[in-house]
């Protein structure tokens, strides 16, 4: 997953605002069980990605996230022993014991899968739209080494994946039986270590070893900084209100309880609006250089 520079309000906002916005999307989906809230946040994430011009990156992330979500959805009914509405009986199934599939476990599995999907896509939006260099600057005052390690780990991913593709091609060129998997994995790991050593040498040469704490940087808050920060606060607020006032209440066990009325639909609409509103103002989003 790579950061992609685009002319969008999210890209134009400071890293702290972008992080808060993406963090609120992920947090909202983590603290809420309600399918209404989760679907609304999913719509918010997808809409934000499209509006930020990183729809392709989110689609790639979804290609990984959707199978994972489906896996969670499938596994939950197999391992959950709760719920009253049995929809299939399989009797004694090996280590799983008595296997009864309940409607509640199926639905809750789907909710868990949906939550995983939303969290992954929110993280993908962060990776694609929030400048990692600015994040590094943000955290370097606190802990430069940890921040840089995290940034470098992200940067090494595409480099190592290119290396792995190259090695796979080379192995396809070998005549006869291919070498054992262990040998290839060992070679890939050694290669990754070599790469890491080279990068470490570069860091030494750039003075990373003697890094000094930089002076505090003062920057005025732009309209986009304010909009995304407000959106993050609004999103957390809406989810908090829904929890406090039991809006969009959901309970899976022992029997399904899904609140779906006007209030819930209004809540979903509000969440989507809060997610999308910062993207309406596109003044000053273009980069000064191209």
């Amino acid at each position: 997953m790579n950061y992609r520079r685009c002319s969008s309000p999210l890209h134009a906002s400071r890293a702290a605002a972008g992080m808060a916005y993406c963090g609120a999307l992920a947090l909202g989906s983590l603290v809420s069980d309600s399918p209404v809230v989760l679907v609304a946040i999913l719509a918010g994430v997808v809409g934000a990605a499209v509006a930020a011009g990183v729809g392709r990156e989110i689609r790639h992330a979804a290609l990984l996230a959707v199978p994972l979500a489906l896996l969670i959805a499938v596994i939950n009914p197999l391992v959950a022993r709760e719920g009253l509405t049995v929809i299939a009986r399989f009797g004694e199934v090996g280590p799983l014991g008595q296997l009864d599939i309940t409607l509640e476990a199926v639905v809750y599995g789907a909710i868990l899968g949906l939550r995983a999907l939303v969290v992954i896509l929110a993280c993908a939006l962060y990776a694609a739209a929030v400048d990692p260099d600015e994040v590094l600057r943000l955290f370097r005052r606190l802990s430069l080494r940890s921040a840089l390690t995290a940034t470098l780990a992200t940067r090494m991913v595409p480099v190592l994946s290119r290396d792995a593709r190259r090695m796979a091609d080379a192995q396809r060129c070998r005549p006869g039986a291919p070498p054992g998997r262990t040998a290839v994995v060992r070679a890939v790991a050694t290669n990754a270590l070599d790469r890491a050593v080279d990068v470490a040498a570069t860091l030494e040469l750039r003075g990373y070893g003697v890094a000094r704490r930089p002076p505090r940087e003062r920057r005025r808050w732009s309209r986009h900084d304010l909009a995304f920060t407000a959106s993050a606060i609004g999103l957390v607020g809406l989810v908090a209100v829904s929890r406090i006032y039991a809006l969009a209440e959901f309970g899976a066990y022992p029997q399904l309880r899904i609140a779906l009325g006007v209030e819930e639909l209004l809540l979903a609409a509000a969440i989507i609006a809060v997610c999308w509103l910062p993207f309406l103002d596109r003044r000053g989003v273009a980069r000064s250089r191209s």
Binding site: Y3, D133, L136, R137, T151, D198, L203, V210, R212
Partner: peptide, 19 residues
């Protein structure tokens, strides 16, 4: 392996920021 930052401007600035 000599590039450690995500953008060119940040890459050029990195050494100076370390100082």
């Amino acid at each position: 392996t000599q590039i450690v930052m995500a953008t060119v401007a940040s890459e050029l600035a990195f050494g100076l920021e370390n100082r």
